[in-house]
Simulated scan of single mutants.
Amino acid sequence: MTPSTPATIDLLRLPTADPGDLTPARALAAAGRTLDDVLAVVGKTEGNGCVNDFSRTLAATRWESLVPDETVTVFSGGTEGVLSPHVNLLVADPGPHPGHDRGLVAAAGRTRDLQPAEVGRGSQLSAVRETVDALVKQLGLTPDEVDMVLVKCPLLTSDRIAACRATGVEPVTEDTYESMARSRAAAALGIALALGECTEDAAFEALEAKGAAGVWSSRASASAGAELTDCHILVLGTSGAASSPLRALHGVMRDAIDLESLQQLFAQVAAEGGTVVQVFAKAEADPSGTVRGERHTMLTDSDLNSTRHARAAVGGLLSALAGTTAVYVSGGAEHQGPPGGGSVTVVYRMPVA
């Protein structure tokens, strides 16, 4: 049933000393909250962000032992360049908050467990779409009021590929690293479909054709990991039916050096009198092999995966604008913003009117 007044939230951004560090949980008491109030734990860990990034697994395991079963955890590995390891705790904050005519609301949920044969395929796309649909309705939002859909989805390990083939079905790919991209793509297209950013035919056609560059979501942020077999999903939106000092707005970077688009988002926050709390962004190496006509080497570097280069580049740009290195930048932006760019969501706090 759709609530008449969606539950508002607060966002606490806290540094971590290592992937297993739980000291940020102590900040909840200082903020007048408990672990039972935690809707989602969203963090950056200092692993390689690839298939064997066990920093994500450690962080997820540690936090999931503390928070309620319905709380989702989303850990993105890779803090290359100036990016700092940290967690974002999204906690229920019902107020009251007089003087605010709208506010940030959130809902979290999970898809069913996905079989290895479903990863990166239409069944994953559909599962994400269905869950996003349900969460948006739960919040009483229209698709246009959604500012971000954050997803952590599974990937294929060697064991999962073997299990898939044991059933007589070929996996979407036998390359475990590529499976991350295929899984992110399926999740992003499910989000785009749920938010009305593309048609059903376009979403499924894009899933099968790598060249479907024109089909993407401006509000999808998907990352993949071996630490789960379902998709953890968080929906954020700014609701006119809520009252809270927190709000959000979204946009896209057209490429990895798109300073102008970022400045426009930050200028909008400043024009409203707000203060930036956190920035969530996707980044990828431009698949064309160039950035504004100049050749880049991110896709041909045999020492570092391209996602690591992209996080470092965009992380530096965003950190300079935000005035903090504890920003959330996730690599691999398949169908999450235009090719070579990525989706961006800015969460900000308003003073009392």
Rank of each mutant, 00 (worst) to 15 (best):
C50Y: 04
V327H: 01
L114Q: 00
L58E: 13
H86G: 01
V149M: 10
S243A: 12
H100L: 09
T79F: 05
V41H: 06
S126R: 13
R295I: 07
V38Q: 00
C50D: 11
P94M: 01
A27T: 14
G341V: 10
H250A: 15
G340F: 06
T199E: 03
D303V: 09
V277S: 06
A181N: 03
G316T: 13
A25I: 13
A226Q: 08
R184I: 00
G274N: 03
L28D: 06
F54L: 15
Q138P: 02
P154W: 04
D144V: 07
E294V: 15
V132D: 01
L321M: 12
T61E: 14
A7I: 11
S55C: 09
E178W: 07
A185P: 02
R56T: 15
N48E: 09
V347K: 01
A192T: 01
E334K: 08
L207G: 05
M148L: 12
M350H: 13
T61Q: 14
E80A: 04
L259R: 15
K282D: 12
D201M: 06
L28R: 12
C153M: 03
R349I: 09
G140E: 00
V146H: 00
P154I: 07
E227K: 05
A162E: 09
V347Y: 11
A202Q: 10
R308W: 07
V151T: 00
E208R: 15
E260K: 11
H296Y: 10
A333Q: 11
A163N: 07
A185F: 04
A27I: 03
G32I: 11
E70F: 08
R219L: 08
G289S: 08
D258Q: 11
T173F: 03
D113P: 07
S158C: 09
V136P: 03
G214N: 05
T229L: 13
E227W: 00
S126Q: 14
A117W: 01
A271T: 13
G225M: 08
T16I: 05
Q278P: 05
K152C: 05
S239K: 03
R112D: 14
T238I: 11
R33N: 06
L58K: 07
P154Q: 07
A270E: 15
H335Q: 13
G293P: 10
V276I: 15
L141G: 00
E130P: 01
N88P: 02
T2D: 05
G341Y: 09
A241E: 12
S244V: 12
L155V: 04
P19C: 02
L58D: 02
S223K: 05
L195K: 00
T176W: 02
L262A: 08
G289A: 05
E284W: 13
L262Y: 04
K137L: 14
V352E: 15
G122W: 04
L89Y: 08
G99Y: 12
N52L: 13
A92N: 06
P339L: 10
A222Q: 00
A29C: 10
T324G: 05
T173I: 08
A186M: 03
R311M: 14
G273Q: 11
S288D: 12
A271F: 07
V329W: 08
V149E: 10
D147Y: 02
V132H: 02
